[in-house]
Design a protein around this nucleic acid. Structure first.
Length: 107
DNA sequence: TCACTATATCAGC
DNA sequence: GCTGATATAGTGA
């Protein structure tokens, strides 16, 4: 399979996300290919790295937290929210406050 | 090729 | 505003 270049790229990009900021799957996808939103999420799910690649700083394009650890029901999602809050990102009702302001764009 | 995925977008209500 | 269906890109089997 052509190696995992996409995943590798995704991880590299996420690694650059500064603390206190977030990005969206869409932004990541757009920076690499264009519409591989799902592929980005896939990369995160297959993320072999843990704290090195802050996958919890990646949220949906509308500011929603999305999922985490493969659980979309909750459970780990609250952990994600907690992590973001701890890093300075305000999360309310499962959504990032001032999402556009703290959105980190690659370019 | 088929099925899966931490999404995005549109239609219907 | 919310729910469901569809589109799209990539990986694994």
């Amino acid at each position: 399979m052509m190696y995992m270049r996409f995943n590798d790229r995704i991880w590299s990009m996420m690694r650059k996300i500064p603390k206190g900021k977030v990005t969206s799957y869409k932004e990541l996808a757009m920076s690499l290919n264009c519409n591989a939103y799902r592929a980005v999420g896939n990369a995160c799910r297959n993320n072999p790295y843990a704290p090195e690649v802050p996958c919890h700083r990646v949220v949906k394009s509308n500011g929603d937290i999305g999922g985490f650890g493969g659980e979309m029901d909750g459970k780990k999602v609250e952990e994600k929210k907690r992590l973001l809050k701890k890093e300075g990102v305000t999360v309310k009702n499962g959504k990032v406050v001032d999402f556009e302001k703290i959105l980190f764009k690659f370019k």
